[in-house]
Write a protein that binds this DNA or RNA. Structure first.
Length: 155
DNA sequence: GCCAACGTTGGC
DNA sequence: GCCAACGTTGGC
């Protein structure tokens, strides 16, 4: 089982939205590296740190899990959708996604500042300068520390 | 709203 | 295939 970090702007789709929906297709990813993680590396049951970006404060707001294999992102076929992809054909999609299922809300969230303050997390991709990838792998050693941080506040 | 950093596009 | 211009991300 692998760990991932997936960013979402809470004003667009928050952990509360995921809690309400239970499960959601992760539409709108338009970055090849992020797509390739979903297409090639994610497995059903992988755990996901749900990260609120462009938020105040930004941080890990919940836990989720990968709930499907990869399949075409339907928004790429919809000419009225902001994520429309003119190059995509039904039999040759460009963008794929997975479903994400709600696990747990983290309240208060683990802020970016708190993540930065933990020396053992210094190697996380999230903290790398200029790193903007919206889907990132999380190393097991980092995941364990994050889960411990979360446990202490949810106990 | 600013701006650094990065990915993508397109002219050559 | 280079690289400048442009658009986007995301913390502040």
């Amino acid at each position: 089982m692998n760990f991932w970090l997936m960013k979402s702007e809470p004003s667009v789709y928050s952990i509360d939205d995921l809690a309400r929906d239970g499960k959601t297709p992760w539409t709108g990813v338009r970055n090849y590296q992020a797509r390739n993680f979903m297409r090639d590396a994610m497995r059903v049951g992988d755990r996901v740190f749900f990260y609120h970006s462009s938020a105040d404060p930004a941080g890990i707001a919940g836990l989720a899990r990968v709930a499907s294999g990869p399949y075409p992102d339907p928004t790429q076929f919809d000419a009225r959708n902001e994520y429309f992809e003119p190059r995509a054909k039904r039999n040759a999609p460009v963008w794929v996604l997975v479903d994400i299922a709600f696990d747990q809300k983290i309240e208060p969230l683990v802020t970016l500042e708190q993540i930065r303050a933990e020396p053992a997390l210094a190697g996380m991709l999230l903290l790398k300068r200029g790193q903007r990838l919206s889907i990132q792998p999380v190393e097991p050693v980092h995941a364990r520390i994050l889960l411990r941080l979360i446990d202490t506040r949810c106990a």
